[in-house]
Write a protein that binds this DNA or RNA. Structure first.
Length: 596
RNA sequence: GGUCCGGUAGCUCAGUUGGAUAGAGCAUCAGCCUUCUAAGCUGAGGGUCAUUGGUUCGAAUCCAAUCCGGAUCACCA
């Protein structure tokens, strides 16, 4: 409808004032609530060009629109804004067409393939709150991008090698005593994480011991025996030393099992996993390529660099003097590998904004190398998650563990639900499922409702709130609608039968109109979310939809509506709202219950 | 110091390519359950949109400067 309006207005402007504007130069807005109308055309820019007063131009355009759009019920000129109101018949007709369309909100294909990476954990400790924001954003975006008409490939990257991985291995070697996840009944990733912490403790102990003998702190760190062992272990790993590799395989296996369990609980998945241990050498061939092209240069010590000063960045190392590669080199290799695997039109990296610089460099280097995928590299940069007490710091033990957090959310969900006393009719299994849904819904929504780009504060108490702008509020609204629909025991149960009643429906109540208008914005919201890489836009939309529905629910009777066609319409309207809530929440990776 | 990001109600956040009197939630206060789920709804109070200047019919939004916070500028990943 909006685009039709724009076209009409553009056409009228051309006829009336004989100058050309394109339809997308016409500004059509959502009017403020107190004006009882559906769309607002902003006239100022047009009036200026036409050399007319805004009010005069507005009423002239309004008159012409009235002639050319049958369903225009009326217009009103207020201070240079042209407010348009469409007829109830138009909206009823729109509603009639869309409310039973199962594909509503699925946009036409763009023909593009998009790869999105998210999660990207190290394999030396369990997932934490920071990973959760990453996963929620990435997973939700994968669904939103798909709804927006793209083919989507979800990938994970495991940082499964390197000095930090060796730390937990070494600690296990020294103190592990053949402990396993089974023998200690500890989730694999948590067990490995314990040894990672153990390493640091041991290092600290050795350092303070050396310092007490009079050694300087820096010196002590260098000469601590455990630090020498770790360098040795890394070398052995790289040489393929069998015992070290076996230990590595075993411990990483535990971690992957643990991660899998967490993914399952979160309801997220991936199409393919990449492992740094398999890709860390891939970048080296591009170093030769870049040298041959004169894109890179070699210093006297043999190290290879790229000069990005002309692009406002620095010189960047690509290959150490000893011939080993660094992070950025590996990422060049990995990007190329992914291109070979899938040929995506776009490669999205969901990575925290502390790596903004890194991805600028990556994209720039790929472009300099003339890679076809360079243009499609997009860093979905999200802000860090802070606690009310400040930044999470692993050293200070303030990191919020993902599994613990999920447990806690479910526990609180259970407590709150039982307090409400709404559990009748649900057996133990269904209850447990509901608590999981609500706890996760609260957590995911709390994180997703914030613009990804922005740093956010995670307040544990507020995150499990069930009131107001929360996931459970929307879940509740869905369950509430389903409850009403279940109570409709008449022969009208088949929704498509209800449609005939719409033909006799004459007028809409204001709140019904508002609901339809908002429902009409759903597809646009999807494309906006996709274009902005922001699930938050969708989250805000869904909240407003649920809120408007609750208002409607409060104001008007549904099952006991005065006229049968009103009753039927409101049932259909409720059902449509439930569908959009469910679909929209699904795009956020959140399930909604039938009852709660 | 260079670069990048941010600053909106007591707190947490919305606010579209510049558009009407800057909106929600939480918290506070006052109402609404003999009627479809009160995890709901209605209302009240609460703002120098960090500051100053500029651009124009119009600025929270764009530009410049300043202040404050964060990130980054590793032969770590």
């Amino acid at each position: 409808m909006e685009s039709l309006l724009k076209e009409k207005v553009a056409h009228i402007v051309e006829q009336l004032y004989s100058y050309k504007i394109s339809p997308d130069q016409v500004l059509v807005n959502v009017p403020p609530k107190e004006h009882a109308c559906d769309f607002t055309v902003v006239i100022f820019p047009i009036a200026k060009q036409a050399k007319k007063s805004p009010d005069q131009a507005a009423s002239e355009i309004g008159t012409e629109l009235q002639k050319s759009i049958d369903s225009l019920a009326g217009y009103e000129v207020v201070k240079g804004f042209l407010n348009l109101k469409l007829s109830d018949e138009f909206w009823i007709q729109f509603f009639s067409e869309k409310s039973l369309d199962a594909t509503y909100g699925e946009l036409p294909s763009t023909g593009k393939k998009v790869m999105i990476e998210y999660c990207g954990p190290n394999t030396n400790k369990p997932l934490h709150l920071g990973h959760l924001r990453n996963i929620f954003i990435g997973f939700s975006m994968s669904r939103i991008l798909k709804a927006a008409g793209n083919e989507v490939v979800k990938v994970n990257i495991y940082n499964d090698r390197g000095i930090h991985i060796c730390k937990s291995m070494l600690a296990y070697q020294k103190f592990g005593n053949h402990e396993t996840p089974e023998s200690s009944s500890t989730k694999g990733d948590h067990l490995v994480g314990e040894y990672y912490v153990r390493f640091d403790e041991e290092l600290k102990r050795e350092v303070s011991e050396l310092v007490s003998t009079g050694m300087a702190e820096d010196e002590a760190k260098k000469s601590a025996p455990i630090n020498k062992d770790i360098q040795q272990m890394l070398r052995e790993w790289e040489e393929g030393n069998t015992p070290v590799r076996d230990l590595w395989t075993m411990m990483n296996g535990w971690v992957y099992q643990g991660f899998e369990e967490t993914y399952r609980r979160l309801g997220v998945d991936f199409d393919k996993a990449y492992y740094e241990s398999e890709t860390y050498k891939l970048g080296k061939s591009f170093v030769d390529e870049g040298l041959a092209n004169g894109v890179f240069f070699k210093k006297e010590d043999g190290s290879v660099w790229v000069d990005l000063t002309a692009d406002g960045l620095d010189q960047k190392l690509l290959l150490r003097a000893d011939g080993t590669s660094v992070y950025i080199t590996q990422d060049i290799g990995t990007a190329n590998e992914r291109w070979n695997d899938f040929h995506p039109d776009q490669m999205i990296y969901t990575v925290a904004n502390e790596q903004d610089y890194h991805f600028k460099v990556l994209k720039l280097i790929c472009a300099k190398l003339g890679k076809p995928y360079a243009e499609g590299i997009y860093h979905l940069s999200y802000g860090m998650v802070d606690l009310p007490s400040g930044r999470m710091k692993s050293r200070e033990g303030t990191v919020v563990d993902a599994d613990d957090l999920i447990d806690e959310m479910e526990t609180v969900a259970a407590t709150l639900s039982k307090e409400q006393g709404k559990m009748e009719g649900l057996d133990a299994k269904q209850q447990k499922e509901l608590f999981r849904m609500l706890g996760l819904g609260a957590l995911k929504f709390f994180i997703l409702k914030v613009d990804p780009k922005k740093r956010m504060v995670f307040n544990p108490e507020e995150s499990i709130d069930f009131h107001g702008f929360t996931g459970p509020f929307i879940q509740y609204t869905h369950a509430r609608i389903k409850s009403v629909l279940r109570k409709d025991t008449s022969l009208r149960a088949e929704r498509s039968n209800l449609r005939h009643s719409l033909e006799t429906l004459e007028k809409l109540e204001p709140i019904e109109r508002e609901l339809i208008l908002h429902l009409q914005r759903y597809p646009g919201t999807i494309s906006e979310s996709a274009a902005a890489y922001s699930p938050a836009i969708l989250a805000n939309y869904l909240y407003y939809l649920a809120k408007t529905y609750n208002q409607f629910y409060q104001e008007l009777p549904i099952l006991s509506a005065e006229k049968p066609e009103q009753r039927d319409f409101r049932l259909l309207l409720s059902s449509f709202v439930a569908d959009v809530l469910k679909k929209g929440m699904w795009l956020l990776g959140i399930e909604v219950p039938e009852r709660m």
